Simulated assay, not measured.
Amino acid sequence: MSIDELLGVDTGDPKQRLAIELVREDHEMLKELVALREQLKASQQEIGELMGISQSAVARIERGERDPRLSTLRRYAHAVGALIEHRVIPIAELKLRWEPKDLSGPVGRGYQLPDRQDLTEAWTGSAKRGRR
Rank of each mutant, 00 (worst) to 15 (best):
I3E: 11
I3R: 03
D4V: 10
D4Y: 14
D4T: 12
E5A: 13
E5Q: 11
E5D: 04
V9P: 13
V9Y: 07
D10F: 01
D10A: 12
G12C: 07
G12A: 05
G12P: 09
D13I: 08
P14C: 03
P14N: 02
K15P: 03
Q16N: 10
R17F: 00
I20F: 12
I20S: 14
E21T: 05
L22N: 04
V23T: 10
R24G: 06
E25Y: 00
D26L: 11
E28C: 04
M29T: 13
L30A: 12
L30I: 08
K31S: 13
K31E: 15
E32Y: 11
V34I: 11
L36R: 13
E38V: 04
E38R: 14
E38Q: 09
Q39Y: 03
K41Y: 03
K41L: 02
K41V: 07
A42M: 11
S43L: 09
Q44R: 05
Q45W: 10
G48Y: 00
E49P: 03
L50P: 03
M51C: 08
M51Y: 00
Q55K: 05
S56W: 04
A57I: 04
A57E: 09
A59K: 06
R60Y: 12
E62I: 11
R63D: 02
R63V: 00
G64N: 02
E65Q: 13
E65G: 15
R66G: 05
R66W: 08
P68R: 02
P68T: 06
R69I: 06
L70K: 15
L70F: 15
S71F: 14
S71L: 09
S71G: 01
T72M: 09
L73I: 07
R75F: 01
Y76S: 03
A77S: 03
A77N: 05
A77Y: 02
A77G: 09
H78I: 12
V80F: 09
V80C: 02
V80P: 13
G81E: 08
I84E: 05
I84T: 04
E85S: 02
E85T: 03
H86Q: 15
R87N: 08
V88C: 00
I89Y: 06
I89T: 13
A92C: 08
K95V: 14
K95R: 13
K95Y: 14
L96R: 15
L96F: 15
R97Y: 13
R97I: 00
W98E: 06
E99A: 06
P100G: 01
P100T: 05
P100D: 05
K101Y: 07
D102T: 06
D102Q: 00
L103N: 08
L103H: 06
G105R: 12
V107Y: 00
G108V: 04
G108T: 00
G108K: 02
R109P: 04
G110Y: 10
G110T: 05
Y111R: 10
Q112H: 06
Q112T: 01
Q112V: 00
L113K: 08
L113S: 08
D115C: 10
D118E: 13
D118N: 10
T120L: 15
T120R: 06
E121H: 06
G125C: 08
G125A: 14
S126P: 07
A127F: 05
A127I: 00
K128P: 12
R129E: 10
R129A: 11
R131L: 11
R132T: 00
